[in-house]
Structures are given as structure tokens and as C-alpha cells.
């Protein structure tokens, strides 16, 4: 809602009878839900960090994540594939913003187009992740199994793969549910549900969720692949 500019300066936001933040309750709830989800992911990542701090050695991510599809056995291209994944998610976030903006302008066609693009982005990301997981699995990595050795050449514990699969899996699960939500939004748009209601507020909430998924990836990307 870009109503902040339309509201008179003298409004008593807190005096009751209206939303103090000028947003409907659904959006408020979505925000606070995302806060709680941030604590879920935060706890995971902090647990990961704590374990890393409590462990003497750790595998070098550049040794682990260095392949990409169709590359063959001896690929050595660290950071390349994951940066593609990162950009896919950023772009899908952009199309989502555009869908939300189109909704505010009541421009159904643009909403539909941008939602479709966002869904494609989400599916592309999930496919990349599926490929990466399969690849690692074939290298012998899984929950409880870690074929990689520490950067300093010592024996590694399994917590490297344990955390990797758990956290990226949990993030992937969020992406997946985001895609489902967006598909529902798309169907509702096509059925003119929002035109009938006179507003596309629901898409704003779906958008918040989607951006949050992107946001989490920023952290996951940094914590697992970069540092």
C-alpha cells in the first residue's frame, strides 16, 4: 500500500479503530510469520555456525561444490553453478515485485505474466538443487555420510553434509511451497478472483513470502558456499 503519502499527517495511528501501521491484518500476520520463520532459519544457521566453531577442521566448499550439469568427472568450476542458482532466485524475486506492482495497478495481464515467470524461476531453482543433490549423492554424500576431507587434509566429521542437506533441504522446501502458493495465486488471478474483490492484496502477501525465500538464500549461499 503506498498510502503512506495519502494519509493526513495528523492521523492518530494508535488511537484505535484503525490499523496503526496502515496495513490489513493479513499482511501484518504474514510479516510476523516471516519473523518467526527467520528465527527457524536463524536457529539452523546458528547451530551450523556453532558446530563449525566447535569442530577443528572443515571441508573446503570449493573442493566440494565445483561441478555443474554435463561437466563430466573432472570439472573444476567452484562457485559457478551456485551463482547461477543465486541469480535465478534474484530474478524470480524481481518478477515477483513486478507482479505485485501490476496487482496494485489492477493490471491483470501483467500480473499473470509475471507470476508465470516467477513460477518458472522457482522451478528452475528447484531443478538446479535437485541436480546438485543428486550429484553429491553420487559422490557419496548424504545425511550421515561425508566423503569429503577437511581443508587441512584431516578426517572430517559428517556434520558438514548433515547441515548442508538439512538446511538447503529446508530452504528448498520453502521454495517448493512458495511455488505452490504462486501457482494458487496464478489460478486465482486467472479466475478473476482478485478483480472481483477489487484488489490484489493476496498477491502482496505471497510476494512477501517469496522474497523471504530469496532472502534466506542470501544467507545460505554465503554460509555454505562462500565462507
Amino acid at each position: 500500500m503506498s498510502t503512506s503519502t495519502t494519509a493526513p499527517v495528523t492521523t492518530k495511528w494508535w488511537s484505535g479503530g484503525k490499523s496503526p501501521f496502515n496495513v490489513e491484518y493479513g499482511k501484518l500476520m504474514m510479516w510476523y510469520f516471516l519473523m518467526s520463520d527467520a528465527f527457524t532459519f536463524g536457529a539452523f544457521l546458528i547451530a551450523y555456525g556453532t558446530t563449525r566453531f566447535a569442530t577443528a577442521g572443515w571441508p573446503n566448499p570449493n573442493e566440494v561444490f565445483k561441478s555443474y550439469p554435463f561437466a563430466g568427472e573432472n570439472a573444476n568450476a567452484p562457485l559457478v553453478f551456485v551463482s547461477i542458482m543465486t541469480f535465478i532466485l534474484i530474478i524470480s524475486s524481481v518478477t515477483m515485485v513486478l507482479a505485485v506492482k501490476a496487482g496494485q495497478e489492477m493490471n491483470k495481464k501483467a500480473v499473470v505474466n509475471n507470476l508465470i515467470l516467477t513460477i518458472i524461476g522457482g522451478l528452475a531453482f528447484l531443478s538446479c538443487q535437485a541436480w546438485e543433490w543428486t550429484h553429491l549423492f553420487h559422490e557419496g554424500a548424504w545425511w550421515g555420510r561425508n566423503p569429503f576431507i577437511n581443508a587441512d587434509g584431516t578426517q572430517s566429521t559428517t556434520n558438514f553434509t548433515n547441515f548442508f542437506f538439512t538446511i538447503t533441504g529446508f530452504h528448498g522446501f520453502h521454495v517448493f511451497s512458495g511455488v505452490i502458493i504462486n501457482i494458487v495465486m496464478l489460478i486465482m488471478t486467472l479466475m478473476d478472483k482478485f478483480e472481483q474483490r477489487g484488489h490484489y492484496l493476496m498477491i502482496e502477501k505471497a510476494g512477501l513470502y517469496w522474497h523471504f525465500v530469496d532472502l534466506v538464500w542470501v544467507f545460505v549461499f554465503t554460509c555454505f558456499y562462500l565462507i
Binding site: 488511537s15 484505535g16 479503530g17 490499523s19 496503526p20 491484518y25 501484518l28
Partner: peptide, 16 residues
């Protein structure tokens, strides 16, 4: 989430 949203958003007129 419901309790928070209700306390923030649904107060009657005058209920600061």
C-alpha cells in the same frame, strides 16, 4: 500471530 494482529489492528475506536 492471531493474538498479535488482533491487538494491533482490531482495537475499537478510542482504544489506544
Amino acid at each position: 500471530l492471531n493474538y498479535i494482529a488482533t491487538v494491533l489492528n482490531m482495537r475499537t475506536k478510542g482504544m489506544s
